[in-house]
Computed example of a mutant assay.
Amino acid sequence: MKKILVLFHFLLSIYVFSQNNERTLILMEKGSNLPIEGAVVLVLKTKQVLMSNSEGKVVFELKGGSNVKVTHSSYLPVILKWTSLNQPQNIVYLNSKENTLDDIVVTKQHPQEIIKSLVENSIKKLTVPARLKSYSREFFKLNGEYAYYNDGLINFQLYKDQKKVKSVLLVEQNRSFGLIDDEISSNLLGYNLNNMMEKYYLFTVLRPLMDDKLNKKFNFVIKVSPQGEEFNEITAVPLEGTNEIFDDFKIVYDVKKKLIVEINAVVSPTTLAEAKEETGKGSKNITRSVFKTNYRIDMENYYLVSSKEEINFNINTGNDVKNIEVLNNLVTTNFNIQNYTYKESDVFKDKTLFNIKNSILTEYWNVSGLTPTVKELEIITNITKSF
């Protein structure tokens, strides 16, 4: 009888566990125990893509047996066996690549020429036409206070038009909460959904490094992985004394395929301190700028996985100076080379989601691939309750 009871409880625990497929990964740096933000988590069976937040957290449903691959340009990749994810919350430690890259020059070719070659080849190899089903999320702050929030599921139909990448947008679901001040609504910089993909697929952020005049204002370093590693890095930092606002760049690329897999562009505090401040009406002075994109190489397909953009600036309205901050994330939840079928009336032609009526059919944000932090969830809750 005792054996039967033990077996019953064992089978019951398996049944209960199987009913709750939600898993949480917390990615930590080995040694420092610091959370890892911006890691790409791929569920290999379903091809679902997720990104870790600033707490290192990823939440997803594990349906059936599927291993999970975790990658980050600064850490060694790891594949997690699905059988090891046997707890609702699983802590995973990643080893830093910091000491595995050597700062050496492996070619007589100038780094600028390497970047030009990488951009040319990457544009050529990006899979177009194709469609990306993406989750978009945007926070908006006015004078330091969170005043607006939107997110949505967006289908980007990518196609080429005279060697340029264009996109048709179809919004599946969306929600917007908050008030936008008419005086500053036109100054939401850099988040026009209708030209976003063109920017990411033509690598326009790298133009300063490919300009024959501007490239002389940067110091380039090539970081080469040991033999057998897949990726190299090129960093480009503005030279001291440069009064213009240039980013600090990091480009991670596949050595064999010559394809860009990650771009980081951040305006450093040193650069901002040396920049000349504009004071006239309508002038904008940047106080923070962050740009990051990740791309995935999957067999013959090569496409955008995620983007993160943050911009903080002061704008002189004539009456006063307002501080505006926009934080934008985009995660590709599904990639497909098949075209969508749609009516012209279904196409979203506006710039941002705050101009469209809310359409909520499911709790799509819970399967978005982007887990909100505790603070972000609190902000979302407070904004949605206020309006």
Results as ranks from 00 to 15, higher is better:
H9G: 15
H9A: 15
S13L: 14
T24A: 10
I36C: 06
G38R: 01
K45R: 12
G65Y: 07
V70N: 00
L80P: 00
Q89W: 12
Y93R: 11
V106P: 03
T107V: 12
H110Y: 10
P111S: 02
E113Y: 09
K116V: 12
S122K: 03
I123L: 06
R131G: 03
R131H: 10
L132R: 01
L132C: 02
Y135I: 01
N150E: 06
D151Q: 01
N174H: 09
R175K: 09
S186L: 14
L188R: 02
L189G: 00
Y191S: 03
Y201G: 05
V205N: 08
L214P: 05
K217I: 10
F220H: 07
V221T: 13
I222L: 13
I222C: 13
Q227F: 15
L259E: 04
A265H: 03
E274T: 06
E274C: 11
A275W: 01
E277T: 05
K284Y: 00
N285G: 02
T287E: 09
V290A: 02
I297H: 05
E300I: 15
E300K: 15
S307N: 11
V321E: 02
K322N: 07
T341S: 13
F348Y: 10
K357P: 08
L361E: 13
P372D: 04
E378R: 07
I383E: 02
S386R: 11
